[in-house]
């Protein structure tokens, strides 16, 4: 993921007075203006439909609703204060916890999977990584629905666990926090596998052999050689999973119950059932703030890593 854009500063130098023919600016022979015309439509489109609309969300979060429930602009801090209300605060803390746990679980799953596929799959490597990526493009809802059927109270997974004595009749997955996290993990684990896989592919396998000589056991080699060498891929994966997990509302709906709702569900509720758009906007801003913080932390870390690497 290219999170930073290289900013080039070079600009064509202005044409100077040529051959004594006055100071009239000369048309550029190289004609670089076309690139501006190509950039403009997309930039204007994104500015209007994306940047301006985000600013609108920010503005509305200071607004109020009229008697009809329609949003009004304003300078009201009530919505932002409401975020501190325990009812909302708890949901936000829960969302944060779920998203973090999801990232960690994805990391724990993705490491062995990426390791096995990148380093031990031989010529099936590409086929396997495609097999991981392709279902991700299948409809999210349908996948989530299938997952919820699989984990349902009398679904195959619990039946199997009961048969081997790992679960009793009261064990549930759906309608628990674990169920929601399972949904998030299922939804976004691919975002962790791809960067980790890429990092392991780049890794010099001689490192592992050297690690074997140095540390002996495969576990120690993995911990002391593979993990540090792929740290940046893991960090990118953490962010890539955390961002969508934090904003998700489908998993909590399909896999959880009323006590597992996340911030996304609150936002959805304010916009579609509660008709309190200013409060919904404030919640959206809160969500965005958390994500920007996560993003910022990630960028600072990678900067530091790079700075150390070049030292």
């Amino acid at each position: 993921m290219a999170l930073r854009t290289p900013v080039r500063t070079e600009r064509p130098a202005p044409a100077k007075n040529v051959g004594g023919r006055g100071r009239r600016p000369r048309p550029s022979a190289a004609g670089a203006r076309i690139w501006t015309w190509l950039t403009l439509p997309g930039t204007v489109w994104m500015s209007v439909f994306f940047i301006a609309s985000l600013l609108l969300v920010a503005a509305i979060s200071f607004g109020t609703t009229d008697q009809l429930g329609d949003p009004r602009f304003g300078t009201d801090l009530g919505n932002l204060k409401a975020l501190a209300d325990p009812a909302y605060r708890d949901v936000m803390v829960r969302s944060l916890g779920y998203a973090l746990l999801t990232s960690v679980i994805c990391l724990l799953i993705a490491y062995p999977v990426a390791y096995a596929v990148a380093l031990h799959a031989g010529r099936f490597k590409n086929a396997l990584i495609a097999a991981i990526v392709v279902p991700f493009f299948a409809n999210y809802l349908v996948r989530m629905y299938g997952w919820s059927v699989l984990l349902s109270d009398d679904g195959p997974v619990l039946q199997l666990l009961r048969a081997v004595g790992l679960a009793d009749d009261h064990t549930k997955i759906l309608n628990t926090g674990f169920g929601v996290i399972a949904g998030l993990v299922y939804g976004f684990v691919v975002f962790m596998i791809i960067p980790l896989y890429a990092a392991m592919e780049r890794m010099d396998t001689a490192l592992i052999e050297a690690g074997r000589d140095l540390y002996g056991g495969p576990l120690r080699t993995f911990l002391f050689v593979t993990v540090p060498a792929t740290r940046q891929g893991a960090a990118a994966g953490m962010v890539l999973v955390f961002l969508p997990a934090m904003g998700d509302f489908v998993s909590a709906q399909f896999m959880g119950g009323p006590n597992q709702i996340m911030i996304g569900n609150l936002i959805q509720d304010k916009f579609f059932e509660g008709q309190d758009w200013p409060l919904g906007s404030a919640l959206t801003m809160a969500l965005m703030a958390v994500l920007l913080l996560a993003m910022f932390g990630y960028l600072r870390r990678t900067r530091k890593d790079e700075a150390e690497a070049t030292r």
């Binding site: 130098a13 100077k16 040529v18 051959g19 022979a29 004609g31």
Partner: peptide, 23 residues
């Protein structure tokens, strides 16, 4: 060739000033 604009002076081809002509 006309791929870079001179910042000073003029380019003439067969006596004709082409400094601001595209390639």
């Amino acid at each position: 060739g006309g791929f870079a604009d001179p910042t000073e002076g003029a380019v003439l081809l067969s006596g004709e000033d082409v400094t601001s002509l595209p390639p």
